[in-house]
Design a protein around this nucleic acid. Sequence first.
DNA 1: ACCTGAACACCGTTCAAGT
DNA 2: ACCTGAACACCGTTCAAGT
Lengths: 218, 218
Amino acid sequence: MRSGKGPRETLDRERVVRAAMDLADERGLDALTMRELGRKLGVEAASLYNHVSGKDDVLDGMVEQVVAWIDVPGEDVDWKEAMRRRAVSARAVFARHPWAAGLVDSRERRGPVSLSYADQILGTLLRAGFSPRVAGNAFLALDSYIYGYERQRASIAPADDVDTGDAAREVLEAAREAYPSLMLVAGEYAAEPSDDDTAFAFGLGLILDGLERLVDGG
Amino acid sequence: MRSGKGPRETLDRERVVRAAMDLADERGLDALTMRELGRKLGVEAASLYNHVSGKDDVLDGMVEQVVAWIDVPGEDVDWKEAMRRRAVSARAVFARHPWAAGLVDSRERRGPVSLSYADQILGTLLRAGFSPRVAGNAFLALDSYIYGYERQRASIAPADDVDTGDAAREVLEAAREAYPSLMLVAGEYAAEPSDDDTAFAFGLGLILDGLERLVDGG
DNA sequence: ACCTGAACACCGTTCAAGT
DNA sequence: ACCTGAACACCGTTCAAGT
């Protein structure tokens, strides 16, 4: 490991966190262990504890970096467009780093980057005329959808490791009778492969349009 | 453990899965290890492999049971009301079993209960007049929100382990300047504690109303 | 100041041996 | 048929010892 790029720079928290993200990108979140992370940095696992308080600290660092990557448009942008852009930006980050959505959404986000991110979002909604309560609910609804989307996708899409042998065909035929609606919908997606961006925009649009009616009506 | 209730019934997969859910209820998903599960059943961890193919098999069994607990109204109920009821039912299950939402939504759901569940939902949407494609997107949007909601809630709510010492007050004062919008919204929730059901219904209503406009307009 | 080696208290899983 | 004991290949983390 440590793909030889000159003399070793001195280790610090940031380099450890960056190596952890590289490791998760390359081999998945399960492969991210302190021992493997040490190996990647040319050091024993125990040495990492000089720069990081533990594995949780590494994961927190990763979460903060992921949130920092999400673009949040400034005050010059209309609230609805701003929410749409940051949702799309988040999805782009999650697509580049498959571990990101699950990690961020399984951990408490109390770091300065996450707090400032929430503050900007809520500020945008408050300026748009939403009451504090509704702004909070809107933020919750949007993020629930954004983070939830990434992890739900797999369960509707047909398995990509399907055998096309005779046995498999038989099972599929039985499934068609047992689950007719599911098979009909799955077939539709199989015929014209689902455009993830479109499916994501569908639900996002429902929420944003609903919010718009609230702010216009009130 | 094995709180003495008569002679030991013979072990089987169902009893193992049920014990696993009890253990997760009592001490969290992290405490669910094969060794601990064996202890709870009065047996060595290795013995569990006679009834279950591994820990994944136990987790799959738990997922199927959770999905089975979610009520899905039959064909006599209007599609919108049916979707609302099953969302509320799912949330009630997740409230009773804090580990459930995260577990179900982190795993592929290919068991017969999950497939039949999806088939019923999609059938309801298709009968309501949604095209297969839109029905699929609607299902995805609703589930993204339902599963996402449970895991997002914690990040907006103020920490419940806050010290009220002088140091804590100082930090809070600094936060008020650094994150004014966040503090305003958090204060609103603190003043009148958030009713989870209302907050959940807020986002759910946005999605359902949006879907209704689609089916009425088309 | 940083790193290593060895240890501790855990994991999931396998397998020969018992009954 | 089911269970046990012991082992294997792992974890995260601590800590004395080195430099």
